[in-house]
Design a protein around this nucleic acid. Structure first.
Lengths: 343, 343
DNA sequence: ATTGGCACTCTCGCTTCGAGAGTGCTAACG
DNA sequence: CGTTAGCACTCTCGAAGCGAGAGTGCCAAT
């Protein structure tokens, strides 16, 4: 495949830009007039024809303008991904908002979702930060009513997990506290496997608790769609791509169903922190995403706790805005989480 | 206004039933043929005309069939609301599922949302059960890194709340535990106000913790949209009412935005537990809901913890199914929560 | 390599038209 | 008086036809 001339690159990016604005096929004349090119429409047409030939653009029908193909978007994004930055003013506004909600992770997530949805002009997804290696920090057993006991487990990252537990027979709160303290001493700093190894030599009841704790630790390492925060879903439906209720439904299903989300987010997981990953049209891997795109990034402190966040929209998406916003918010969240761990 | 004859009532309910199935205006002939009425279409037409005159039905245009008005739905629902029951077989299936997830409130909520969405054929909403009067049960202070402390508060209902706290200077875990124990002894069983009253006579740091705890208790009594679980949103978009993306967007916005939800749910709050509330077309109060309907109910143990759940859909909604499902699920959730409190 | 000119193609919105569905009305009937 | 058959009338819906407009592709000239 031949490479693109300077002007062809320019024209390709202009087509993408114009098309993301107007959502209608872009004509040669429109390009010349709107962007003040100093060549004639006919010249532009030649380049358009060449770009179409090479697969970067497509004509909906013989006598229409051009719109980008998946490949076109990919080329565009590749040129773009290293460069874009959110304006300093916006950066400051956002940072300020985050520091208002000092220490409250869930509020950060909500804020992140809101910022992503607004600045990235799409639906946003933010998963809770998860321990990469969940470690035991503290255990508490609290008697509730009769034989019902509440088990509260604190992980090394400060996350709290809870679980109900029914005893064979009532046990006093003092005894429960003592047991909890013993187990805490035994398990502090250990991961699921190491905790499970402490089963030996414990009493029957303690064994049960330890098994439960190990199970909870294990579960904490999975990325679950349970704690995913969404925002801007209604906005994205305003895009003309979603005028057909069938498309809208498909998009909603992607955003709603846990299984899809898990796959998607594991995609983000495979990218390194700091890097932004752009999935255009499902990258030929997910049929359900063929018409959509996502801009994803991981955030958090590797080795401690990380999560994923991103923007979802039609293929015709303002990639520039989305990428810079995702990158910035991911970085910000990472800093905040770093501060929790190493204040 | 004259009252309806026996046959008019029958015909009205048949129109509603047929219309909820087909989503197209119902003709006199269709009624006679499908439901085996032993009168002629002409007779039915007379009744249809009367019902239209009285405002229960409407004609989209001169020569179309009839569809129910809001008033028509209301009449229909009023007759229906006392009677419907979910089939025993379905009841058992659902009950079984819930008892699989013993003790895990969040999983119950998710399950409830899923059941409501499937059986009620709409989008479902389930709020977390909230303490009516949040009472202190247990406090734990856990040292994290340096001056960062994790405050874990257990409420009388077994809910767990957490909050980060930055100290002026490092304090050892032993001291923190002692302080937590002292405050627990002081505050156990008390509500926000009574907890706050314990400020007097405590050390500076203890005062800070107590204030924070009181604040967390107070917040726990608010119904927040933060912990609302949704399901079936994609399904509801399949209904022809949402073919227009404008309507779809409005529905999504209602389901997504916190402020709407809070209003809606407070509506459910005002109904007594066990009672099912049907809001048709926003009952002239909420413009945004004019095209939609909701079937809502509270669940939980009054005086301890209650939440709300419901089904959202177009006005043309299978009210029978929705009402019986909502009633059943609300009852089931209430029982489960009762068991947590009074095992 | 670029450009002006021009024929060609395809969509889109508009109108027309006929079929079909369903009603309202009237007159007859038990 | 309630019910019914018959019939004229109305309105929607889909198909078909048509003209305007937009935009291209190509060719010949620069």
């Amino acid at each position: 495949m031949e490479s693109l001339t300077e002007r062809q690159q320019l024209i390709l990016s202009l087509v993408v830009r114009e098309y993301t604005d107007t959502a209608t096929p872009v004509s040669s004349r429109a390009l010349v007039e709107k962007y003040g090119l100093d060549v004639s429409p006919a010249t532009v047409r030649n380049d358009l024809a060449a770009l179409t030939e090479m697969g970067y653009l497509r004509q909906p029908h013989t006598s229409a303008g051009r719109e980008p193909t998946e490949m076109g978007y990919r080329y565009f994004v590749q040129r773009l991904i290293g460069e874009t930055e959110l304006p300093i003013a916006e950066q400051n506004t956002i940072t300020h908002q985050f520091y208002q909600a000092r220490g409250d992770i869930e509020q950060w997530m909500r804020l992140a979702a809101s910022v992503l949805a607004q600045h990235g002009r799409g639906a946003s997804l933010v998963t809770a930060p998860r321990q990469e290696r969940a470690r035991f920090k503290h255990l508490e057993l609290i008697s509730t009513h009769g034989r019902l006991v509440l088990l509260v487990l604190v992980l090394s990252g400060g996350e709290v997990r809870q679980q109900m537990l029914t005893l064979a027979e009532p046990v006093s709160q003092e005894k429960l506290s003592a047991i909890a303290q013993r187990i805490t001493a035994l398990c502090v700093g250990k991961d699921a496997e190491a905790v499970l190894a402490q089963v030996a030599g414990a009493s029957t009841f303690e064994q049960e608790v330890i098994r439960l704790v190990a199970e909870m630790l294990r579960k904490s390492e999975e990325i679950s769609a349970g704690d995913v925060i969404r925002d801007g879903v209604a906005n994205v439906l305003a895009e003309p791509e979603f005028a057909s209720s069938e498309t809208a439904r498909q998009a909603l299903r992607v955003l709603e169903e846990r299984t899809y989300l898990e796959q998607l987010l594991s995609k983000a997981v495979s990218s390194s922190v700091g890097g932004v990953q752009v999935v255009i049209g499902g990258d030929n891997a997910w049929q359900e995403l063929r018409e959509f795109s996502m801009v994803l990034a991981r955030y958090g402190v590797p080795g401690y706790a990380t999560g994923a966040l991103g923007v979802f929209g039609p293929q015709r998406m303002p990639y520039g805005r989305a990428i810079s916003t995702v990158r910035f918010v991911a970085g910000l969240m990472s800093n905040l989480i770093y501060e929790i761990y190493f204040e």
